[in-house]
Design a protein around this nucleic acid. Structure first.
Lengths: 240, 240
DNA sequence: TGTCTATAATTGTATATACAATTAAAAGAG
DNA sequence: CTCTTTTAATTGTATATACAATTATAGACA
């Protein structure tokens, strides 16, 4: 009969994973410390480099390790520190609270990308982009300053749309189905325009959500969503 | 700085992943439908079976596909994108990799819960809690002000631990395996103590991560993690 | 008919090898 | 000394190959 030993045999890559996990847990490998290279692990466990590579690659995916090409593999600095956040459409969020949603649209025009914007959109400074600016309000109180830049080379007709009948995100999602989305959250103080439109003081800290969207590997848009810190939070609660 | 769209060549396994992703998205492959076998994909994309295997294995890890040995690979039934995004600290990218970690511990003592803390921990004002305060630093620069309150009624020995050999999170996670976790992120201006310990001005906006943890329906701890907004960001990037 | 068996299909694991890409450090040039 | 170039170390990707494990099914057999 074969197959009996199967239940007892752990795959070799799993043995390596377990060993590294335990070493991290027992603080034999400390945070940010370099662990043995693939070559060394392969020798140590008498496996091929590919098998050691698989073990490490999976641990990286699980967040226990980080690795840098040319440098090595290191124990992740912050274990289990990554929150899950829900970033929702602001209008839905406001309506979900049974509040009155409204907005004010301030601009929709073609501009030339400055240096920073060019970096964000992966284009060349001076390239044309479409710029729109909307302030979303809850019960008349400004809750989000939403500035969006769209790559004009990819979406040339964006500026000609009538966004009173459709919405920018609706228009974009139909023509350019979302393939990838990036959010970066940071804390800032509002600039003058943001102070004015959000009706807040210069000392009110704000949550800034930077959002970039891709469609079929094209970087379509970059949005800057500014929220007054005293009115808006990102939260999540999850079972493990 | 990379991490932006790889402009040059896309790895072959990535091309296969993209192709399958898109086919799922466009409902060319329907939920529960079998997709081509590794052998067929390898032939179709003119790659080795190992490369096709990698593409599929990663899509399985991402939840788009499920596979059964001996049967085949199928489109996952639940394509329900949770709006929850896993957000990770990208302090590494901001600071670069030449970092030396250190921390300073300021307190570990039993205190009585005030009204606000009692609300957070679901206890009665005056109940005992353990309070610890650590400032995490890299290259001597303060990066996180971490204030943690632990319910003393549930974890009575917390204050007696020697946290130079173990860590608070390690101790807690072993005795009280995490069952639920809540994060609330907001933007604040630092109070005087935070300014001092983080070595920032009163005008530096900060990201505050409020974290509460549960174990077996007991509210174990409440942590207040304050990060200077210019050094700390939360980021997520996900394929759809 | 019902049950066991062999087989084909498919995924799972493992190896040896090769070359590319990235990084830090050493070596060299001025 | 400073700047540039080269080199070594390490991870990233890719291939060809082999055999193991699992599953459904077709076929053999009683």
């Amino acid at each position: 009969m074969k197959g009996i030993k199967k239940s007892g045999v752990r795959p070799r890559f799993q043995v390596i994973k377990d060993s590294i996990c335990q070493a991290i847990k027992e603080r034999i490998y400390l945070p940010d410390e370099q662990i043995p290279t693939e070559y060394e692990l392969a020798k140590q466990f008498s496996v091929s480099r590919m098998t050691a590579n698989r073990a490490i690659k999976e641990l990286v995916a699980e967040g226990l390790l980080v690795r840098y090409q040319g440098l090595g593999t290191f124990v992740a600095m912050v274990q289990a520190e990554s929150p899950l956040l829900e970033i929702r459409n602001i209008a839905d969020e406001i309506r979900g609270r049974h509040s009155v949603y409204s907005n004010e649209r301030y601009r929709l025009q073609e501009v030339k990308a400055d240096k920073e914007l060019a970096v964000q959109l992966g284009i060349t400074p001076g390239d044309p982009v479409f710029h729109s600016l909307i302030v979303h309000k809850e019960n008349g109180q400004p809750l989000q300053f939403a500035e969006r830049y769209v790559n004009a080379a990819i979406v040339p007709d964006y500026v000609n749309q009538d966004f009173s009948v459709t919405t920018p995100s609706q228009y974009l999602s139909e023509l350019f189905p979302l393939s990838e989305i990036e959010h970066i959250v940071e804390a800032i103080l509002p600039n003058f325009l943001e102070q004015e439109l959000l009706d807040i003081s210069a000392e009110t800290p704000c949550l800034l959500v930077n959002r970039r969207t891709w469609s079929a590997n094209n970087l379509i848009s970059y949005a800057r969503l500014v929220h007054p810190g005293n009115l808006y939070r990102l939260s999540s609660r999850s079972e493990i």
